Computed example of a mutant assay.
Amino acid sequence: MLEVAQPGSSTSQPPRNEAIPLPSPQDQSFLINITFLKVLLWLVLLGLFVELEFGLAYFVLSLFYWMYVGTRGPEERKEGEKSAYSVFNPGCEAIQGTLTAEQLERELQFRPLEGR
């Protein structure tokens, strides 16, 4: 018969850290194939538009589309994640490493940091 370890007993094991499962090689291969097909379709359409003498317009509109798709909206931000633009953060809090006007003035005028 199988015994179940009770909390506090010496046979109980510490909780494991649950890792996020990696995608299987089949899933990765599927994504690579889809990406390859998208690039191939884009190249075929680019060739078509070049023949129609609209190649530059197709290329520029494609760049705008990629920029639009590559940006995330505020609703897609994770809980607690700060925006790179401080005006979008609660209390206009800047992220670590942001160069402020006060810091730039201090550095240009060789003043010591306030905390030292």
Results as ranks from 00 to 15, higher is better:
Phe64His: 14
Pro25Leu: 01
Val4Phe: 10
Pro90Trp: 00
Glu3Ile: 10
Leu43Ser: 14
Ser12Lys: 05
Glu105Asn: 08
Glu114Tyr: 04
Pro74Asp: 05
Tyr58Cys: 01
Thr35Tyr: 05
Gly55Tyr: 00
Glu75Asp: 04
Glu93Asp: 11
Ile32Met: 15
Ala57Tyr: 09
Arg77Ser: 14
Leu22Asn: 05
Ala19Lys: 03
Glu18Arg: 10
Asn17His: 09
Tyr85Trp: 09
Ile20Ala: 06
Ala57Gly: 02
Leu22Trp: 03
Val87Arg: 06
Pro7Arg: 08
Gly115Thr: 15
Pro74Ser: 11
Met67Lys: 07
Glu114Phe: 11
Lys82Asp: 11
Phe30Met: 06
Val44Met: 12
Phe64Asp: 06
Ile95Glu: 13
Leu104Thr: 03
Pro15Arg: 08
Leu40Asp: 01
Phe59Leu: 15
Glu76His: 08
Leu31Thr: 14
Gln13Ala: 13
Val4Lys: 12
Val87Thr: 10
Pro21Ser: 04
Val4Ile: 15
Ser10Val: 07
Leu45Ile: 04
Thr71Phe: 12
Cys92Gly: 05
Gln26Asp: 07
Gln6Ala: 13
Arg106Cys: 01
Val44Ser: 02
Thr100Ala: 02
Tyr68Phe: 15
Gln6Met: 07
Ala101Arg: 14
Glu93Cys: 04
Glu3Met: 15
Lys38Trp: 07
Pro112Trp: 02
Phe36Asp: 14
Pro25Phe: 07
Leu31Ile: 09
Gly70Trp: 00
Pro74Glu: 06
Glu75Val: 04
Ala57Trp: 11
Arg77Thr: 07
Val39Pro: 00
Gly97Tyr: 11
Leu56Lys: 07
Ala5Asn: 10
Leu22Tyr: 04
Pro21Leu: 02
Thr35Gln: 15
Leu104Arg: 07
Ser10Met: 07
Pro7Lys: 09
Arg16His: 05
Phe36Pro: 00
Gly47Glu: 13
Leu52Val: 06
Thr71Ile: 11
Pro7Ile: 05
Leu52Asp: 03
Gly70Gln: 01
Asn33Leu: 15
Glu93Trp: 01
Ser62Pro: 00
Val60Tyr: 08
Leu48Gly: 02
Ala101Tyr: 02
Val69Trp: 02
Glu75Trp: 12
Phe30Cys: 01
Thr71Trp: 10
Tyr65Ala: 15
Met1Phe: 04
Leu99Phe: 11
Tyr68His: 15
Arg72Cys: 04
Gln96His: 06
Lys38Ala: 12
Glu105Trp: 07
Gln109Arg: 09
Leu104Ile: 08
Glu53Asn: 12
Arg111Glu: 07
Val39Ala: 15
Thr71Val: 13
Leu2Tyr: 11
Ser12Glu: 14
Leu48Pro: 00
Asn33Lys: 13
Leu61Ala: 10
Gln26Pro: 00
Ile20Lys: 04
Leu108Val: 11
Gln28Asn: 05
Ser12Pro: 00
Thr71Lys: 08
Gly97Asn: 01
Ile20Glu: 03
Leu52Thr: 03
Pro7Ser: 08
Ala101Val: 12
Glu51Leu: 08
Ser10Tyr: 02
Phe110Met: 13
Ala57Pro: 00
Glu102Asp: 01
Gln26Trp: 01
Glu76Arg: 07
Gly115Val: 09
Leu99Val: 12
Gly70Phe: 02
Thr11Glu: 11
Glu53Lys: 14
Glu107Cys: 15
Thr35Asn: 14
Val87Ala: 06
Leu31His: 12
Gly115Trp: 15
Val60Ser: 02
Glu114Ala: 14
Val4Ser: 12
Pro23Asn: 05
